[in-house]
Write a protein that binds this DNA or RNA. Structure first.
Length: 577
RNA sequence: GCGCCCGUAGCUCAGUCGGAUAGAGCACCCGCCUUCUAAGCGGGCGGUCGCAGGUUCGAUUCCUGCCGGGCGCGCCA
């Protein structure tokens, strides 16, 4: 329907422009927001006014004059500064209902893989502690974005990068071990830069359960000769580094065992949380594996051979400034160990090597300084400038409602899901643009009341289901496959609902193209709004069998789009509430 | 200091490539259940789109400066 109008416009433009000015690549044609503006509207005359050097309304008139006649179009108006409004013949919009019902769950989905291949890496929270509300936003956003991309024709691979190598994993290991030693009676102070939190104590208990006293060492052996911690006037990071080295020396092969237990435990917690959140990955990639596979070594070699590196102060540097970074970055530290950065380079190159030419990473906003150097590294290795796209997720704060204070602020994602439920939590995370700070109103999310916006949408779906249950109870025939007299759908609320339905696909494509899945939740709210208004204005199960049939068809189509949209957002579509 | 993000109704936020009278939810006020779920609907109240310039037929949108907030600026990850 839309493409037919666009074809008409193209022909008209050919006549009007007559080669004097190149025709625009795309003709912006959208379902009109206001019924007074017809069914579809275009601003093409406004955009052409300048190149043609003529007033927009004059251009619009010329275009309308040149429009070939069509059985679809009832009337064409010029309005405002030069908008061209199309009024379609009765029944034209109603055809949408048939289209939706025939496609079912596939409605709105582009041909799989037709848009390309993209790997979406998201969450990737360090396995050094429980996931917090910020990770939750990343998870909800990344998953919905992946869904929306998939529905828009992208072949999508979802990956989680586990930072199981490096200093943070060592700090986790030492933290757990220290608690274990304390539990075993060793009089040792817990390091300032160790990880606080009960989960460390729990991990220590698990360590004892699994390994008994095998990892116990004398307090004096552990502490002797270490540089002072911050509390004792020293540098807490130096203290920690020395503690890590001491742990390795005293535990030998046991160090790896402790670390493995600690990491696996945290990772299991993360997996369980994401599972409860309904977020799944195609692959969990390990930083450790990337290092062990030699990929890091190869990446460094390649960068060196390519002449992108230099040595200074005993470290190996990458010339990222050449490619837009503000300063060069270290690949190999003076002590010979690799930076997180170099491991990440190898990982990203590996993703490209696995034939995912487009990489989309979802990071916390605090990592924005990291984008330029990562892009620079990828370009140095592959020559590709735009292989990596990064979406930054702004911070989440919890509202300071009564609940939060009384319960002492649940900060973990697991607690949040437990309090508010998966649907409300997901919906809330997607109710703001990702580049906007999010104030999470926990009180509202957990309230089982009509104030909670997620229920507004779910209720629309459940209401329709209820109508069909009623129809069955009353023994009314429901045959959605048979053609319905859709031209009977002439009530203003029905016309309005049809107009909202007509915007679904475009909304989906916009969400995918701009990485803005929140457009979907806003759309769903509007769709639910359209349904509720109609529901209040018109009874569906009327005696007039033909009208009833048409209304049930529209109801079913609306329900289908609600269901499809909610599924993409990761929110359930209940039949009963 | 430099870089990135943000500033829209009392509160929380949408606003697509510059386009029609700047929208929604909450809060507040007034109405609607003998009929398919009132977790709903209708009406009302509420705006110098941070400020000042510039570009344009047209600016919440683009550019510059200023004010205010967040984040980053490690041989941490």
């Amino acid at each position: 329907m839309k493409s037919q109008l666009q074809t008409l416009l193209r022909e008209a433009l050919d006549t009007v422009l007559a080669g004097a000015v190149p025709a625009p690549e795309t003709i912006n044609l959208e379902p009109a927001r206001d019924r007074k503006h017809g069914d579809f509207a275009t601003n093409v005359a406004l955009t052409l006014a300048k190149p043609l050097g003529r007033p927009p309304r004059q251009v619009a008139e010329a275009i309308v004059q040149a429009l070939p006649p069509s059985p679809l179009v009832k009337r064409v108006d010029i309005a405002g500064p030069g908008f061209i409004n199309f009024f379609l013949v009765e029944g034209a919009m109603q055809a949408l209902v048939t289209e939706i019902l025939q496609a079912g769950p596939a409605y709105g989905r582009a041909a799989p893989g037709s848009a390309g291949r993209v790997m979406v890496e998201f969450v990737s929270a360090n396995p050094t502690g429980p996931m917090h509300v910020g990770h939750g936003r990343n998870a909800a956003y990344g998953d919905a974005l992946a869904n929306v991309l998939e529905a828009s024709g992208w072949e999508v691979f979802r990956e989680y990068y586990i930072n199981d190598a490096g200093r943070q994993a060592d700090i986790l290991t030492v933290s757990v071990w220290l608690r274990y030693l304390q539990d075993g009676g060793a009089a040792l102070a817990f390091p300032e830069s160790g990880y606080p939190g009960d989960y460390i104590r729990e991990a220590a208990a698990a360590l004892r359960l699994q390994m008994g006293a095998g990892m116990q060492r004398a307090a004096a052996d552990v502490a002797h000769g270490l540089p002072a911690d911050e509390a004792a006037g020293g540098d807490k990071e130096k203290h920690m580094d020395a503690l890590i080295a001491r742990a390795r020396a005293l535990l030998g092969a046991g160090y790896e065992a402790v670390q493995r237990l600690a990491l696996e435990r945290q990772l299991a917690d993360i997996r369980a949380t994401l599972d409860a959140f309904g977020v799944r990955f195609d692959r969990w990639a390990s930083e450790r594996d990337t290092v062990d596979s030699g990929a890091v070594r190869r990446a460094v070699e390649q960068l060196r051979i390519g002449g992108h590196t230099y040595e200074q102060d005993g470290a190996l540097w990458l010339r990222t400034t050449f490619l837009g970074d503000e300063k060069d970055r270290v690949l190999i530290k003076a002590d010979g160990s690799a930076t997180y950065f170099v491991n990440d380079i190898a990982y990203h190159v590996d993703k490209l090597a696995r034939h995912w030419p487009n990489l989309l990473d979802v990071w916390g906003a605090d990592h924005h300084g990291y984008i330029a150097r990562m892009r620079a590294a990828i370009r140095a290795l592959t020559g590709r400038k735009d292989a990596l796209q990064v979406q930054l997720i702004q911070f989440v704060t919890l509202s300071s409602g009564r609940m939060g204070k009384r319960r002492g602020n649940f900060v973990t994602l697991k607690d949040l899901i437990g309090e508010a439920g998966r649907d409300a939590t997901r919906f809330f995370y997607l109710s703001r643009s990702h580049d906007q700070h999010l104030e999470f109103d926990v009180e509202l999310a957990r309230s089982q009341s009509n104030d909670n916006p997620v229920y507004y949408v779910q209720y629309a779906h459940a209401r329709i289901a209820s109508v069909f249950r009623q129809a069955a109870e009353r023994g009314l025939p429901v045959d959605l496959a048979a053609p319905a007299p859709l031209e009977r759908l002439v009530d203003p609320t029905e016309q309005a609902l049809l107009a909202v339905l007509a915007r679904y696909v475009q909304t989906l494509r916009n969400a995918a193209a701009n990485s803005t899945p929140h457009l979907l939740t806003f759309y769903l709210r509007e769709l639910a709004d359209g349904l509720h208004r109609w529901y209040n204005a018109c009874p569906f199960l009327v005696d007039d069998a033909a009208l009833r049939k048409a209304r049930l068809a529209l109801a079913a189509a609306t329900q289908q789009v609600l269901r499809n949209g909610l599924a993409l957002a990761g929110v359930s579509a209940p039949d009963k509430m």
